[in-house]
Write a protein that binds this DNA or RNA. Structure first.
Lengths: 134, 134
DNA sequence: CTCCGTGCAAATACTTTGCAAAGCG
DNA sequence: CGCTTTGCAAAGTATTTGCACGGAG
């Protein structure tokens, strides 16, 4: 049996989730904090971290991984591909999946792994940075 | 023109590279440090970090990403797939590529991206942890 | 009234960096 | 010798946590 925790309503929690969902910039905890600070002057960064962690384990948001030392979140939990720019450290969504479910499943089976999710992360230089460099 | 730096020989640097290459555990900086400490009692963690960073930018090792707050390295720079266990945070190599170069290339072209590398990271529970849980 | 959620600040954990000394070429 | 590499310790950054108080049910 799992530990189920009661959960009260919280205006701030709702706002945090909405903030993550409202952007495609794959924000950091601090971005969310800065974003909401004007409207919630007494918001604290710790609260943002606590809620993001919770959302993540609830599966309502996902982590894109750590880019340049900061964790990046994504409100879109449908599987999709990410592109990370080495220059500006921006994260972009790339439409498409690119992984063969079947191949993965068979490789996993062979190794006795239980695969729960699979991410594709491309690295390179984004269009903006390319332009700037030429 | 690129910044080319002269590079002297260093016994410790060599040992650090060898340590990363000698294992398939996808070590952290600290693992490498602990590993070499007995043989090089005056080795410092800063040196390990400095060298790993250098190797990474030289392309002789690669980063698997940050797992559980620590960066994991891989001495095998040929493209391959990684599996990260949610329970024990172990990182395993999975033979196979699973990404379609062509599809990626065409999606990238459409978005004006210059893709330099692509990683597939699977998440789930490894065989050992599965066994332990049953 | 009873827990949950939060602000605040202190504590952690990892990684980076400045500087003087030691090493390579 | 000149420039690189390192040890050491201090600094830096991102994230987590303890505690007392305000808020939801």
């Amino acid at each position: 049996m799992q530990t189920e925790k009661k959960r009260n309503y919280s205006r701030k929690r709702e706002a945090i989730l909405k903030a993550v969902r409202s952007t495609t910039c794959h924000p950091t905890a601090d971005w969310v904090y800065q974003q909401l600070k004007p409207e919630y002057p007494d918001l604290s960064l710790g609260t943002v971290y606590r809620n993001l962690t919770q959302f993540k384990s609830d599966g309502v948001i996902m982590s894109v991984g750590t880019v340049n030392g900061q964790e990046r979140f994504d409100g879109n939990v449908r599987p999709h591909t990410h592109f990370v720019c080495c220059r500006c450290h921006g994260v972009l969504d790339v439409p498409g999946d690119f992984v063969s479910e079947n191949e993965v499943a068979s490789a996993a089976k062979k190794m006795g792994l239980k695969v729960e999710s699979g991410d594709v992360i491309l690295h390179g230089v984004c269009a903006e940075c390319l332009k700037r460099e030429n």
